[in-house]
Nucleic acid binder design. Structure first.
Lengths: 337, 337
DNA sequence: GCGAGTATTGGGAGCGCTCCCACTGGGAGC
DNA sequence: GCTCCCAGTGGGAGCGCTCCCAATACTCGC
């Protein structure tokens, strides 16, 4: 325990004294508020510079009842779901938008019960001015916590079951439909789906899009082969598909990871892509470009998702009542289909 | 601007009143401090439950001069460097370790001058109890800011030029050496390096490891072909290499992205991997497994890097003086070499 | 030259919590 | 029986800032 000299930061009162003004004036000058004469304003600025004064955000937060921070909560029982580059891009977008509103970003990975409890307390105690919630499972206790905490909350993607008041989502149904229609338009008639976990809204929505397109084309949809959004699960699903439906000629994978897995399984089984089997993914992450062959996939504006969530939250915090947003997704054609 | 009823949170004083104790006692009871009789402690707990009281973290922070948050700062002029899954894993590790110390994580992407300035202010104003700094370029103003802010700072990876007092790094030199030695041990004699940006310490260290191994084996090192850690730059570097040294039979790529790019360029040039040219990468990210052929690479404990940074920071915050840490990296052999 | 405004100014009461400190009332020790 | 010690208690002074409000200074029109 090294006892370091705790040398305190200069406070507003010291600025006050050095500049020869009252605390109110100093405060106004520092916050660029009106009702400060030019002379005093400059005196304050000089004192601030001389002292190296920086306002204490905690004290300010206590007085204004605003923390100046927004929380981004990523839920899921396995912290590694966060390793998905998807979230990194969401963060990039959200971070940029929050910065515009001069808010800081608190990142909460709510994987364990303990951390979920911490997040709940953070929200209830108004430790942040608002929160963005992502990847909520069915019955996720976080959803209830968010409701109890009386602070602005924006959902990223809709949770299963309920439709929250404020959310930003991607048009998963439309994207999946477009992908499937594309496969059909290229003459594929035996198109299967490798879908993601059907206990998530994304998983369901993308399957729904696939199904809609198949039915609309008069093709009976295959039974969905369920994966869990990971590459290995995609490979396994593809293998199962090949076993059950050897004549499959098209595959809609509910995300790129599983699409990549499917490609690997197809390669292993000696099927040519796209000649024998065409494959389409979803997400348009880096893996889609690296895959061999490069994966035709549905691009979704991930950074925009983060950005819009943050903007919606900022609007909410400032007392407005924004409307939910559904961002478009569109097909990017590459070699795999 | 909807005027919502601002219904305030219950405060300690309300608990105090309901429980019929003094503020001191209530505070002690809530913080599990000693000097509280069993009876009063229970009375307080009851009142807390009844009121749904949650301590206000801001007020607590002001009184204790501790914010209960640690900042993770990722620097770089392009926010997209953050999209590298590398950071996501660091965050997972750091987040878990911070949680153990009951600290929240503030994530700061310092891409623009404006955001760097904000980060500087955050640190100087002690808006966080400590900070973890990553990916500092040469002359990064953040390094100076961190020094001026008198709060605990831990570096993730060493910045170019200086060796900070506290840091956690990966043994890049050792890992690169091991990778190169492996190529040499497999009979490769014309081993080239596709190195990362040489204005970063990682880039330099990995090149140094390659060079050491080559010299130790009595092989003259090739001139480094510099990339920028991206897949395309790896492909371009490989193409250049093939043009200048058509007889190259081994490649050490300073990260997996560039390794994947090299594989693509080799495939394009009709070279077989590993028969004609063996390739080794660095990082062991998902892309290494997805690559075709799967990339032999140097695994580094990324989550551990984040975890150890956070632990070191926690130690620092609690007044200890931890020693810098260098985490081991080791080769993972796959098909590419 | 005078009253009505309008622009500045500074005092002071919070914001909700921690923690020092002075005080009380028993046991334990002798 | 009388100190001494200490668990238990509550009062109150901050932590550093914002912001309401009353007080003062200046302006302008007539």
């Amino acid at each position: 325990m090294a006892e370091v000299a705790p040398r305190r930061q200069p406070t507003l009162d010291q600025v006050t004294e050095l500049a020869g003004v009252s605390r109110s004036v100093a405060s106004r000058a520092i916050n660029n508020a009106p009702h400060v004469s030019r002379a005093k304003r400059e005196a304050v600025e000089r004192a601030v510079r001389q002292l190296g004064y920086v306002p204490n955000p905690t004290a300010r937060a206590l007085a204004t009842r605003q923390t100046g921070a927004a929380a981004l909560v990523v839920s899921g029982e396995d912290p590694s779901i966060f390793a998905d580059p998807f979230f990194a891009q969401v963060i990039v977008g959200a971070s940029a938008a929050l910065e515009e509103a001069d808010l800081h970003l608190m990142l909460c990975l709510a994987a364990s019960d303990r951390s979920r409890k911490r997040v709940g307390e953070l929200l209830r105690s108004k430790g942040a001015d608002g929160a963005m919630l992502m990847a909520l499972r069915e019955d996720d206790p976080l959803a209830r916590m968010a409701e109890e905490a009386e602070i602005p909350v924006v959902f990223g993607g809709r949770p299963v079951g309920t439709t929250p008041r404020w959310y930003v989502d991607v048009d998963n149904v439309g994207g999946a439909r477009e992908a499937t229609e594309y496969l059909i338009s290229r003459g594929r008639t035996r198109v299967a789906a490798i879908c993601g976990r059907l206990d998530t809204e994304v998983g369901r929505a993308r399957y729904r899009g696939y199904r809609d397109a198949m039915l609309a084309a008069g093709l009976g949809p295959f039974l969905p082969q369920e994966g869990d959004f990971t590459e290995p699960s995609g490979a396994a699903a593809m293998a199962a598909l090949l076993a059950n439906h050897p004549d499959v000629d098209g595959v809609f994978a509910a995300n790129d990871n599983m699409g990549a897995g499917a490609l690997r399984a197809l390669r292993g089984a000696g099927r040519r892509v796209p000649a024998d089997v065409a494959v389409v993914g979803f997400d348009d992450l880096a893996v889609a470009q690296i895959a061999d062959p490069p994966l035709t996939t549905v691009h979704q504006p991930i950074a925009a998702l983060g950005r819009e969530m943050a903007r919606m939250l900022v609007a909410l915090i400032s007392g407005q009542d924004p409307t939910p947003l559904i961002l478009p997704a569109h097909l990017v054609t590459r070699a795999s289909a």
